[in-house]
Design a protein around this nucleic acid. Structure first.
Lengths: 238, 238
DNA sequence: AACTATTTGTTCGTATGTATG
DNA sequence: GCATACATACGAACAAATAGT
């Protein structure tokens, strides 16, 4: 530490101000932010995989050569960003969470809570994206895919999450699938409670079966319409 | 604190285990997490608006009756969640950031970094959503909207961000608009550098003008195609 | 059941850096 | 230059949870 101060003094007094332009700003980043950044990029880069434990606080202290407080602030940041779960005790520590579309989901939930869009706006977008996905799914659907859909159709109560996931998966597009699933979750979480009545559930089941049939028959127009109606019945927009 | 311990003991020893099912788990939440939660929901609920300063650390210490370190951990969490910016000095403090779709954007960026989807998958979704938006925009476009679009068209170089924002805004759907803008940003940030050549930029300009024309003429099919071509030229998918 | 080791959670005291007036 | 108000950082100590012996 003392070394750094000495060097700074030299630059400012002996070398003079003209020399300073040669140097890039050191962008005085806070120690805890620095550590947070290093750890988070390590997680995103896959250097720590899901379920794995980060080094303990004492190890990180040695590793980064900072105080415990600083380490703890950085780890708190990771926890707040939902990158790690923290457990106490002898086998405790910071365990990295899987990086999933749950991140997009919670971001959307927060925006909704903050009033940045209405439920109607979300639902409208959801319908549009759902229609697109239904078209693509109908287009891509193989006989093996039909089998999987039939299994879902044979259940007593169709789960919206399971069905939409299966159908979205037929797009062979992980982004589209994850996004759609996230939006379904957000809409489900924020739909008014009283709307989920038994009759609605029955109607949803019927529409779900129609959707499956349409996709199995590779009828894109029919699939689009069925998806729209199914989502409407699920969220009961009238 | 002592009271809590006493009650616990009573439940465990005197009341017996059968009674425990009546009670909900107290989910021993950490003090810093508790404070993080209270402050973050306050921000989402709009009790603190953007730009406003949270109480200083010392005020929060009095407010929550915990130590400085605990408050700091909570604030670190808010900072990591991009809910506040922290400034030092006499006029420093934790200032709440506006809650915007930048949250969705960074969530998507993180997923991309973690390899949860490819650029191609993102681009494909972007094209589909863009086409939908172009159709709706062409459908909704008023003469006043045309004026605004003409202003953008008159610029020497069309900005993809500005143009897409303007067009997406015609959907009158804040969610769709925010989502689309976020995806454009993510794709722009992650497109390979070398692709942004001058010739591409020229082609993008031409396609942008075509898109504006199509929307101004309320030609939905034309708008859809123009949007697709514009985005393709922007991201140069060949 | 009691003890021990490990690890996180919380607090206090102190010193320093930074910006405003 | 100085006082003030705020964040940043360190180190020591103790509390609490958990697993293993």
């Amino acid at each position: 530490m003392n070394f750094i101060i000495v060097i700074k003094t030299e630059i400012n007094t002996i070398e003079g101000k003209r020399m300073l332009t040669k140097f890039k700003s050191v962008e005085q980043i806070k120690a805890s932010n620095n550590i947070y950044g290093q750890l988070s990029t390590a997680i995103f880069d896959g250097r720590y995989i899901a379920g794995q434990k980060l080094p303990s606080e004492s190890e990180l202290i040695r590793c980064f050569n900072v105080s415990r407080t600083t380490i703890r602030e950085a780890i708190k940041g990771l926890e707040a960003s939902r990158l790690v779960d923290i457990k106490r005790g002898a086998t405790g520590g910071a365990f990295v969470r899987p990086v999933t579309f749950e991140r997009v989901e919670s971001a959307c939930n927060e925006l909704f809570s903050a009033g940045k869009f209405s439920f109607f706006e979300l639902q409208y977008a959801l319908l549009l994206i759902g229609q697109m996905i239904a078209r693509i799914a109908a287009h891509n659907c193989t006989s093996k895919d039909v089998e999987n859909l039939r299994i879902i159709a044979s259940m007593k109560h169709i789960s919206c999450q399971v069905l939409t996931e299966q159908i979205a998966g037929l797009t062979n597009n992980r982004f589209l699938t994850g996004l759609f699933q996230s939006l379904v979750q957000v809409a489900t979480a924020n739909v008014k409670e009283e709307r989920h009545s038994y009759t609605i559930s029955m109607q949803f089941n019927t529409k779900g079966l129609e959707l499956i049939e349409a996709i199995a028959q590779r009828d894109e127009n029919m699939a689009e319409m069925a998806m729209s109606q199914m989502l409407r019945s699920y969220f009961d927009d009238r």
